[in-house]
Design a binder for these strands. Structure first.
Ligand code: FES
Ligand code: FES
Lengths: 156, 156
DNA sequence: ATGATCTCCGATCAATATGGTCGCACTAAA
DNA sequence: TTTAGTGCGACCATATTGATCGGAGATCAT
């Protein structure tokens, strides 16, 4: 149904929480542990743990072991894009099955199929959209996205 | 994984086919039947039938019963948006579960949740995107979408 | 040094959504 | 009236996702 998974939901909540802790008050050394987030948002602890592990593996957050351990952002909230978050959890963004086909594995309808190109276009557009929105945008009352103009694309 | 279902894929192929037969303008003589499309694109006949039924129920195509029956576009290809097609098959576009919650059924994390608003923004943006692209765009070699500029939003 | 606390990671089970199949009723042309 | 087609709902199979469990390794407090 073109929707993101619950895990991604959890990831967004967690990141939002971590970010707001690090940004909001003057507590630079403050790490957030899994339990704290899980209880705050009613997320199954073990599931959230896995989600956070994925995020950490993808370099979005840093993990600190041992007691008093926990997570903190690996980068500024402004550098973390929604696209990156989603892809960390769900794998490469693929609006349709045959967009990331491995070599040699084409769907049989390929040669008859003329929806492939347009779909890839759409996929790209969605990616642009998600890539232009960062964690920071989710934090403040910032006006958020506002689809990026095609002509000013790639300004970065 | 933020992807559209195969049924929707089939719907797009079928519509693309029907449209290309009619070539954008309604030519009342030529109807296309399910079997023809199914065989052309290697789609399970019964499944495609259901997909076409959904499309017909949603007013995108007209069905004609009896022998020599089949389907034809109910509207010009330029009037059929991708968003409409997708929603006909998959129901209302909902990037996240709680975007279309029924009254009285809020997820428990709602009051703590600050990702809701941004997600709805994203959802809306994606909708705009899909709503600005029509079947006609998928047909020709038209430059397609080209994300709509934020500043010129709502010009239609 | 030792134990307690916490993350890390792989395996596994359950719930749900999706893909695909049947069978029959209905409709319209020949 | 026969026949080729859609309309439609129930149904099963499979894939994806959500959630759970158990143990290994790291770090800090004592
Ligand atoms: S469905 Fe795979 S290429 Fe079109
Ligand atoms: S998860 Fe439902 S409101 Fe945020």
């Amino acid at each position: 149904m073109l929707k993101i998974s619950k895990k991604t939901d959890y990831a967004l909540m967690a990141l939002q929480h971590i970010a707001s802790v690090q940004f909001g008050d003057v507590t630079p050394g403050r790490v957030v542990n899994t339990k704290e987030i899980a209880e705050e948002y009613n997320i199954p602890l073990e599931l959230l743990a896995k989600v956070l592990q994925s995020l950490s593996k993808n370099g979005l957050i840093e993990s600190h072991n041992g007691p008093k351990g926990g997570y903190l952002l690996a980068r500024s909230a402004r550098q973390i894009t929604i696209a990156h978050i989603i892809e960390s959890i769900e794998g490469p963004l693929a609006i349709t099955d045959c967009s990331h086909e491995k070599e040699g594995e084409f769907c049989m309808q390929r040669e008859h199929c003329n929806i492939r190109t347009p779909l890839l276009k759409i996929q790209d557009s969605i990616y642009q959209l998600l890539n232009n929105m960062t964690l920071a945008d989710m934090l403040g009352g910032t006006p958020l996205i506002t689809i990026q103009s095609a002509s000013t694309q790639g300004v970065e």
